[in-house]
Design a protein around this nucleic acid. Sequence first.
DNA 1: CTCTCTTAGCTAATCGATTAGCTGACTTTT
DNA 2: AAAAGTCAGCTAATCGATTAGCTAAGAGAG
Lengths: 340, 340
Amino acid sequence: MATIKDVAEAAGVSTATVSAVVNDSAYVSPELRSRVLAAVRELRYAPSLVARNLRSGRSQLIALVVADLANPFYARIVTAAEAAVAAWGYSLVLFNSDEKPDIEKRIFSRIRTLGCDGSVIVPVGAESHYQRRDFEGGAPVVLLGRSIGDAGVDTVTIDNLSAGKQATNYLLDLGHRDIGSITGPSQLTTGSGRLQGMLDAMAARGLAPKTGHVRSGEFREDTAYSVARDLLGQPDRPTALYVANGVMAIGVMRAVADLGLRCPEDVSIASTDTVAGAGGLKPRLTRTEHPVKDMTNEALRMLVDRIEGKVAEPSRNVVFQPALVVGESCSPLKSSHIPA
Amino acid sequence: MATIKDVAEAAGVSTATVSAVVNDSAYVSPELRSRVLAAVRELRYAPSLVARNLRSGRSQLIALVVADLANPFYARIVTAAEAAVAAWGYSLVLFNSDEKPDIEKRIFSRIRTLGCDGSVIVPVGAESHYQRRDFEGGAPVVLLGRSIGDAGVDTVTIDNLSAGKQATNYLLDLGHRDIGSITGPSQLTTGSGRLQGMLDAMAARGLAPKTGHVRSGEFREDTAYSVARDLLGQPDRPTALYVANGVMAIGVMRAVADLGLRCPEDVSIASTDTVAGAGGLKPRLTRTEHPVKDMTNEALRMLVDRIEGKVAEPSRNVVFQPALVVGESCSPLKSSHIPA
DNA sequence: CTCTCTTAGCTAATCGATTAGCTGACTTTT
DNA sequence: AAAAGTCAGCTAATCGATTAGCTAAGAGAG
């Protein structure tokens, strides 16, 4: 690789002049300018980002740390982030913390040594992990997707409460009163928040799920399957179910089919899904979806603002609203279901 | 960020000593060593990769360029690559060429200026794009997934011929003789290769598909749906179909259902799929799968070998074999199908 | 006691680019 | 004609780490 010195020598000028021509940062006479450009072409010179970075303290790199690359939700974040990062003129360095806080810690130090200009992180650790000191002296950070306690950093999250509310209200509007739920783990905000939203929606109409009609499916397909099978096999099964995520919805649909029930005729299913589609299920699911692309774009916009020093505020928290997407998995409550 | 100078000052030693301690590259007395380590911890010093880079000419970065991030196949490559790259002590810089040769070209120059130590590329351009001169003077490259003409670089590909053969042989072994195929675009090796394998397998038993029983589904679900619907709606429909990829298989299954046919009772379906599962279709598909993880690991092993100068050969081409995964979408030919 | 050998740790050059600040030629002003 | 001003282009410092080569102190030999 040719260096700026080679070019300077070939053109019979100083490196400063070459730099001025290449960056168009100072006036250079047409005579010298053309000699420099000729030498650049001749030697196929491309300025080394590494050297430029050392001087400027910038790396043009933005790190993205996701919790589980194999999960389609994060895969979509990666897709959106790559496009956004490229559009802002940076390159994307990708890390997978695999839901392990200790791996995440090692990644953080790696990001520091790489000199990344900033990072978008889907946090996996407990709140304590993200106290400001962890980022102190380092590059700006935006936390994406999962809400953790206020760590004094920018965050972009989803309104899980609203997701549960929207899906449940849809079922309520169809006339359902006996609604059950397959929930996620209560220690995750994605689990507890959505359930709380569902309960809030019902409470707003003076209702509450029957005892035993709210079960944890652990965000897992197999668990959701067995829990749903048990719940729907009972004589007083709910007429509708709110399922707190997409993989569980697949398990629930399987349970419905295996019990000889039909969806939506016998039971209405509404869910919250992080990504579109839930694997092309047969009756397309009525669900709330996360605006993954918008969220990711916003996270990167916030990050780039910080990197380029355009923001003064200490920390901003943007909350996105999920969107209700109506499929064919819900039907109005049939009169036969209405108790006498 | 603390620099090596700050640490040297704090510990009362020279920068050379700090470097020696940090890199364990020379003997340092326990006394000084501990003072240095204390200062490192105190100042949260992490050596700047940028500076180290400039000196060593290495960047510890490996670029991965995929053709379409939104495609689950490439998403799996990304997942496997991130893990492999991390295991080798590098970091992954991710690019999406979006199937566009001109974007790919820009990415190549970006990779050069970033000073990446090497790249794994899923090529999208025509052969001419990858002639050796494009990489000349640059870092080592391994082409992954798609085979292009011999460009003098290392490649890791899949045996598409074998994929078509294996799936078709399975159908033949079940007694099927009238087998049709929904193929991909013939200009792609993944399209033409798999079809050729299917034809070869039949020819090996003195058979050939009937006229009109081989149709192009363009690797698209909707096209595959309408083509399959047309093909299977005819009175002399084939008893079995070989579908050349996973998304098309979803379309075909939908067509089967919409025609009131049952799989595998009325028609057997075997496919080739790049990733596992094909979205959890109802009768699980019998298919050939790509060993994505193994392929990606091998590509990175080859790349790291080159980067670290362990290989002499001009170029190596590794071809992986697809694996047949038996599901429930194929059944033996029923006697009613056998012509009198 | 002097000379040589060893070696811990330091000084300073280096990687490639940017840029503050200087030089000297030329122009303008009085 | 001398002083002042302008500015194209150069010199050299700088970013942070590594490392060749040097220094000086201690050990061992004679």
